Each structure stands twice: as structure tokens, then as C-alpha cells.
Computed example of a mutant assay.
Amino acid sequence: MGHTDHGTLDDHTPDDRTHGTPEEFGEEFWDERYASTRSVWSGNPNPHLVTETAHLTPGRAVDVGAGEGADAIWLAQRGWTVTGVDHSRVGLDKAAAHAAQAGPDVAARIRWEHADVTTWDPGPDAFDLVTAHFMHLPSVVRDPLFERLVRTVAPGGTLLVVGHALADRKTALRGHFDPDFFWTGAQVRALLDPERWVVETDSEPGRTVVHDGEEMHVGDTVVRARRVR
């Protein structure tokens, strides 16, 4: 849920159907969507994941909203032991198949977990890298989710969250302009105790994507923080 990966605007941008309450767009919705086409996403890792984590020493990672598995597979290829969490079993089945195609060593480093990401909680200090991309949910659901993501980062570990920039919401969501579905870097920083965290990236980078054969400029919000103790 919420996962997009790099390619066309459609790869990066959920369509009008993918934003609403967890009840409206829960497991059944995503199972149907993943079953309706060979690939919903491009199969490439999210570009901000590559940019923000390529320098990290591999350890235990979790990709929350793993979708069809591109990010988890990329991490496993770099030596991470990965948990990919998603509440669509159809999406996870596709992810497992893609991991198998990447090779037995890669597949062996990934565990796919079927769970509702809006309530999933592995407990504190569970992972060295916690990453979630494009979690555009109502704040009443998203804020507790982000609080759990912060808690699950181990000392010395990294939190990476990426979303569509609020300033770019008309391009990003094509009809769903409610600011409540967006978050800012400041909101993420407010969850981080400055005595325990160092914010290493807080930016709104732009990128060029292709939609209906035309290039478009879109903006993202990227926050990467390291837990120092």
C-alpha cells in the first residue's frame, strides 16, 4: 500500500482510486488491483531509496508497503536481510516470484510478511533500516504509523520516508488534493527526539517523469534520519 517505484508518472503516482480510508482501499482493493494487470509498478527500485541508502552498511531492513517487491529485492541484492510488509497477499506473491527470478541468494534474504501496514508493529529496535514510500493516508492513520516506524529503528539505524510534496499535490494525486493526505518534513522531524536522532536529509527534490507521452515535473518529500542512540 502506498508503494510506488521509478518510471513513468503512473509508476510513481497512484491513480484516483488509491487514496481514501483504509476500509475503502484495504486488502481487497489492492488484491484486485494487483490481480488486474501483470505489473502495477515498473519493477525498478524507488530512486530516492537508491540515492539515500546506497552508502549504508547492510543489516536488517524493512520495506513497509512492499508492493511487488522492487525495493526489497534491491536491498537484498546489496546484502541486506529484508522484511517486505504489505497487506496485499497478491502483491506479495508477485514480489516473491520476482525475488526468485533474481536468484536464490536474493530470495533467501527476504521474508515477505502479510499484514495491515496501518496497524503493523514489530516492536522497538527491530531494524537497522526502516523505509516507507508514498504512504498517503489520512493523518489519523498515518501519524500513528509513522510513530511506530520511528520506534522500530534500532540504535545506529536509519529511517527513510518518501512522499509526494504537498506543493505538488495536484500533479501527484490527480483529483485528490486534500492536504490531510500529505505530510511534510517538519511533521516527520517533530516525531524525532533531537537527543537520539540526526536528520541527514530533509528535502523536496524534483524529478521528471513521463505521462501520456509528455514529460512532467513532479516534487517529492524525502526525510532520512539516523538514530544515534
Rank of each mutant, 00 (worst) to 15 (best):
A115R: 04
L145N: 07
D116K: 03
D128F: 01
L173T: 14
D178S: 09
H136W: 12
G20S: 04
H6Q: 13
F127A: 12
N44K: 12
V85Y: 02
F127Q: 00
D180H: 08
H114M: 10
D168W: 09
A100E: 13
G91M: 10
K94R: 14
F25V: 10
R227K: 15
D31A: 03
L191K: 15
W74S: 05
K170I: 07
A154D: 07
A126G: 05
T13E: 15
A172G: 13
R229E: 14
A97M: 00
D71H: 01
I73P: 04
R229A: 14
W197P: 06
I110W: 04
D105I: 09
P45E: 15
L75V: 04
V210G: 05
S42F: 04
D71M: 05
R78H: 11
T221P: 01
G43N: 11
G219M: 12
D15L: 00
L173C: 07
R111V: 08
H217A: 15
E28P: 01
E52T: 11
T53N: 08
L137V: 12
D212C: 05
R109L: 00
V198P: 04
V150G: 09
H19E: 05
T171M: 12
V150A: 05
D105P: 03
T57W: 02
E24Q: 15
V50L: 04
V140C: 08
P138T: 04
I73A: 13
S36L: 01
P122I: 08
F182E: 12
E28L: 00
D178M: 11
R33M: 04
H217I: 08
H164T: 07
A126E: 04
V198N: 08
A107D: 11
P47F: 09
T119H: 06
P155G: 07
T131P: 03
G163K: 12
E52G: 06
A225S: 10
H211L: 14
V188K: 07
V141L: 03
V153Q: 10
T119R: 14
H136E: 13
D168Q: 04
Q187E: 15
L92H: 06
G20M: 01
A95S: 08
D63G: 00
A95L: 08
D93K: 07
M216E: 15
